[in-house]
Amino acid sequence: MNITRRHVLLLLPAAAVAWKSVLAGTPESAPNYTMTDHWWGMLIDVSKCIGCGNCVRACQAENDVPDGFFRTWVEEYHRTDWHLDRPQVISPDGGKEGFPPVSEDPDGIYFFVPKLCNHCADSPCTQVCPVGATFITPDGVVLIDQKYCMGCGYCVQACPYGCRYIHPTKHVADKCTLCYHRITKGLTTACCEACPTGARQLADLKNPKDPIHEFLRTHTVHILKPDMATGAKVFYNDLDGSVR
């Protein structure tokens, strides 16, 4: 058969497609872990949080979070009866070393609110990324591909919860991974591991045996900024209306 220029031209696209599949290779897979079997979230029981800062320190140790930046942090709220919607919020060094003791306020309440990435099902941060460097995994964890991120900071601005920052030395976006390297191995997150009161609990919403389901059925839980329809998966129990 005579190969004409036309034949070559016809064959080239087929060759390109074939080569592409060679380049793609086989995807990496973790043994005994099927992403589609899980849908991760977290339960935070505000009424159990004692503001010790264990979670913040644990997170920084587990994930090498640079000083002054936080993947999780704790806020102390002081909500008075005069300003129900204007609480005073402090978070000295993210609550890492705890909080200065406060005395009883007859006209208001104090309480702690731990915060972290809400791993939103419809996250604004993943929608604004111009290069596809941040995404939600099939098991519901919002992650950052730091090799692909170019550090533009759009996602930092887009997160309504302020959970992202630009890493000071890597110059890429960084945030809570819900300890993805731990939960895929059957461990709980570092913050949940270190929480002495069980105020934080990792929850697998796709696991029918997870205690989260009974808890959600028997308690009235809230998410932060529900009006933004982010599909946040960090559920707060006993959350005061002043928390934003």
Partner: peptide
Amino acid sequence: AIGEIAANPLHF
């Protein structure tokens, strides 16, 4: 990237 993040070292 998912596999790379899952391979991060454990501390706890």
